[in-house]
């Protein structure tokens, strides 16, 4: 499995990278754990790779204030190695532990994974549930895109060809929110057949807010409506009803691992389980 020939450029600075990006046939290489396997099968044959893996500007976790800013080049391993991040956003740690395997987490980056936009990857759902904003930059300027507007389809995003994902801004989580990630994995690849990220708030015993995002189900991760749970105590019947329509309007995937019917069912199961678990952690 040998990729087709290409040229390789290692960016020495962010400016360097922004100058080089967008030229014909150039693909951005971060950790490479999404791109290189596709290149080995020659499913991707870029003429040139722009390696941004060494850019210090893109790395790091900034927890000043009550939110967070995560550099796009931060590896999954670095996310897991930050107890402060896990404290503030336990959802990130819970989901990240299940991404790929140790070796993949050591190399793979949060920005690389988000820009790759695999319909079954975990982090997009987490970003949606946390209300993340993605900061993009090109030679011409910068702009911010809400996670909800970023994922536009399978392996496609709002990123223009000359734009780079610089960092991810996370708002402060709702006070005393409980968070949970529930995933049902395909046994070979480890990717989600269906997974759910939930952020739940409550007042006394009553649910006051639910943010739910699903991945693996359709062509992209999406925010699903589970507002039916608000006002309930989160008992089985209430949650069952609240997640009954989480795949409504979604073109649910069917493949050799899960039929449309089974995957739709699993979407409801992981949604309910994530909300229930998040609720148990709230308050």
């Amino acid at each position: 499995m040998i990729p087709a020939s290409f040229d390789y450029v290692r960016a020495k600075s962010l400016r360097d990278a922004l100058n080089a990006i967008g030229t014909d046939g150039t693909k951005v290489l971060a950790g490479g754990h999404s791109l290189i396997p596709m290149m080995r099968f020659r499913l991707a044959q870029p003429g040139r790779l722009l390696d941004i893996g060494q850019l210090a500007e893109l790395k790091g976790i900034d927890l000043k204030g009550r939110g967070a800013r995560i550099g796009a080049g931060t590896s999954y391993r670095e996310l897991l190695d930050s107890p402060e991040l896990a404290e503030r956003y336990p959802l990130i740690a819970e989901a990240t532990r299940g991404i790929g395997d140790v070796q993949v987490r050591n190399r793979g980056t949060i920005g690389g994974g988000l820009a790759h936009a695999d319909p079954a990857s975990d982090m997009p759902a987490v970003m949606l549930a946390l209300g993340a904003t993605f900061n993009l930059r090109s030679k011409g300027g910068k702009r911010s895109v809400a996670a909800a507007d970023f994922f536009t389809g399978a392996f496609t995003t709002a990123l223009a060809s000359d734009e780079l994902l610089i960092d991810i801004a996370l708002p402060a989580p709702p006070k005393k929110a409980g968070m949970a990630y529930a995933s049902f994995e395909q046994k070979a690849s480890g990717y989600a057949i269906a997974a759910a990220a939930a952020v739940v708030t409550k007042s006394r015993k009553t649910i006051t807010g639910v943010t739910l995002a699903l991945t693996g189900v359709g062509d992209r991760a999406y925010l699903a409506d589970a507002s039916g749970a608000v006002g309930s105590h989160g008992d089985d019947a209430a949650l069952e009803a609240a997640v009954a329509n989480v795949t409504k309007g979604i073109d649910v995937n069917g493949d050799i691992h899960a039929s449309v019917e089974y995957r739709s069912h699993l979407a409801r199961v992981v949604a309910r389980r994530a909300i229930a678990l998040a609720l148990s952690r709230a308050g």
Binding site: Q186, K187, A188, S189, I256, H257
Partner: peptide, 25 residues
């Protein structure tokens, strides 16, 4: 519990890599 090689009706191996053929972990 998990291993199966699947062919499509037209003879394509649908479990042609370790991403789809579930070798026990």
């Amino acid at each position: 519990l998990q291993e199966i090689a699947v062919y499509s009706d037209d003879g394509q191996l649908m479990t042609g890599t370790m991403m789809d053929y579930a070798v026990p972990k």
